[in-house]
Design a protein around this nucleic acid. Structure first.
Length: 444
RNA sequence: GCCGGGAUGGGGUAGUGGAUAUCCUUGGGGACUGUGGAUCCCCGGACCCGGGUUCAAUUCCCGGUCCCGGCCCCA
């Protein structure tokens, strides 16, 4: 007697089952992102699902460490499921000294975080990651940010999102000019600007040393979101610089390049600073235009991280993009579909005696990369027709006694109902000739 | 880790301190042994778990679990 234990079959909290209805549209996210990265010249890397805990202790705070899925291996080492890509990518890069630069790498894999699940946040998620290591020009920044936009545009999201851009090195100077000493702390506060109550925000800034009479103007400045090509006007108002100021010139150059990747997509937003401590230059974040969701992707320049891990000085810029918000946004905008209308055969067998011949035929069709279903149940012809429709077949082949004896096939288009008889060899001929398209139906 | 709201077949739901728990859908089978998505018929399938109150709990109370959302955080 078999007993079943219902409790043991429950899904683990924060993890999700993905059925074909979801998995198929999701496939588009992966295909589009990876294809985009490849046409930009990025090459794919694959990373382990586990790392030594110490890899994250080096650069991250207790927060991240406390969110890790950790365990001890049989040798007592502390191991964790990877919570993010960057440390591993940097580890992989610095442990190989023979790789020529610039290095363009992308990856798209699973990560784990032990935190409370909520909208767009699970304990297991996929993240796309794209980075360029080596040169640190504005052109490199632009290429990475351009890739982010290219992916979203190719998913059909053009006009549904915008990418907010800022530069931390410039912001740092702005803050210093406004009397703030602890810049890191200020970044953390500004990062929450959009969520914080205005009066509280004023107090926080004053506490960090900003004179009372500056606070209001500073706030106004943070509220502005300006098309990136108009950056110069904004920057002139917030900081003193001359023509030899390389940081400023670099950012202005970036703002001239970006619109060529995608017009009306990029905006200067001084309140975008990102919470992470290790960003050193440009930072950026993509949001849906309605502001309904959390950020779709985020990244920036992190020139010091390789130094921290290995002593090597390797400038870097990159971004990460999770699957969850993207999926929510695609659903919201009606773009979460995958109706690839491709040809699909159903091979019906009124008489199971000839089933082996049907298999041979299906194998020929399948070898041409066209899906073919076989009638693997005991069913009468009526049921087989119904099943063919249900499975989304476009074409029906009948292979029974009549066909077998005359060395032919009955071929029916399911949308029009048109039906012909064709010799087996003629069909194979059409199959062999089909190029990229469908197997042509000889319309009389 | 903290806060709020939930939980009835696979999905969506109705309802109840007591009797065979409602309806729709999905799924399986048939009407239909060589040709259509329809229709009709039949079948399967649920009160999250544990404790308490009660003669009696799916219903009321408490705890847990999970789900949804928020906080923290956002690499």
């Amino acid at each position: 007697m078999l007993h079943y234990i219902p409790v043991a079959l429950e899904r683990v909290r924060g993890f999700r089952d993905i059925y074909p209805e979801e998995s198929e549209p999701r496939k588009r996210i992966f295909e589009v992102s990876e294809k985009a990265a490849e046409v930009f010249g990025f090459r794919k890397i694959e990373m382990p699902s586990v790392e030594h805990m110490d890899l994250y202790r080096i650069k991250s705070g207790d927060e991240l460490v406390s969110q890790c899925f950790t365990f001890r291996d049989k040798g007592g080492r502390q191991i964790t499921l990877t919570p993010e890509a960057t440390p591993t990518v940097v580890r992989m890069l610095t442990s190989r000294k023979d790789i020529s630069r610039p290095v363009r790498w992308y990856s798209f894999q699973k990560y784990w975080r032990y935190e409370e699940p909520q909208a767009g946040r699970q304990r297991e998620f996929y993240q796309f990651n794209g980075d360029i290591f080596g040169p640190s020009s504005a052109e490199v920044d632009a290429e990475v940010i351009g890739l982010a936009a290219f992916i979203l545009n190719n998913l059909g999201l053009n006009g549904h999102y915008r990418i907010l851009i800022n530069d931390r090195s410039i912001m740092e100077r702005v803050l210093l000019e406004n009397g703030i000493k602890d810049v890191t702390k200020a970044f953390a506060i500004i990062d929450k600007f959009k969520k914080t109550d205005r009066d509280q925000f004023f107090l926080d800034l004053e506490e960090l040393g900003m004179p009372k009479d500056r606070v209001r103007d500073f706030c106004k400045m943070l509220e502005q979101v300006t098309p990136i090509e108009l950056s110069e006007g904004v920057i002139k108002n917030v900081i003193h610089y001359d023509d030899n100021d390389s940081q400023i010139q670099r950012f202005l150059r970036l703002s001239k390049i970006l619109p060529s990747y995608s017009p009306e997509t990029f905006f200067l937003d001084l309140s975008t600073v990102r919470g992470l401590a290790y960003y050193t230059g440009v930072v950026f974040e993509a949001f849906d235009v309605d502001g309904k969701f959390r950020s779709i992707l985020g990244g920036g320049r992190y020139d010091n991280l390789a130094q921290l891990y290995s002593g090597q000085n390797i400038p870097a810029v990159g971004f990460g993009m999770g699957d969850a918000i993207l999926e929510m946004l695609l659903k919201h905008t009606g773009l979460f579909g995958y109706d690839k209308k491709e040809q699909k055969f159903y091979v019906a067998t009124p008489d199971k005696t000839y089933y082996p011949s049907a298999v041979m035929l299906a194998t020929k069709i399948r070898s041409s990369a066209i899906p073919a279903h076989l009638n693997i149940n005991e069913r009468n012809m009526g049921m087989q027709l119904k099943e063919a429709n249900k499975e989304g077949a476009t074409d029906l082949i009948v292979l029974g006694k009549q066909e077998f004896e005359s060395n032919s096939l009955t071929w029916k288009k399911l949308d029009s109902g048109k039906q012909i008889s064709i010799t087996y060899d003629a069909f194979l001929d059409l199959l062999a000739k089909r190029g990229i398209g469908e197997v042509a139906f000889p319309d009389s």
